[in-house]
Amino acid sequence: MPDLQNLSITTESDARGSFCPGPLMELIRLVRAGAVGDVLAVLSRDDGSKRDIPTWVAKAGHEFLGMEPFEDATRFIVRKAK
């Protein structure tokens, strides 16, 4: 796993007010709007995201860089690969 502390995040979206599957939908929007190589992050309080986001990233062919606790939520970090 890459060192999350030293990653430079291109765009981050705060989806903490959003419910399943909102945070995943937010990530999909970020990935679609971003450029290849962008590092994209979503903040989520939805426990389903911990399974949903890595599963979607693998299926969609992007790179899951990791997740880390952030305040009352989890930050999910993804690199757009194609």
Partner: peptide, 11 residues
């Protein structure tokens, strides 16, 4: 609606 959304997300 949520089941449909998840299925759509998974292609």
């Amino acid at each position: 609606a949520i089941l449909a959304t998840g299925a759509a997300a998974m292609g």
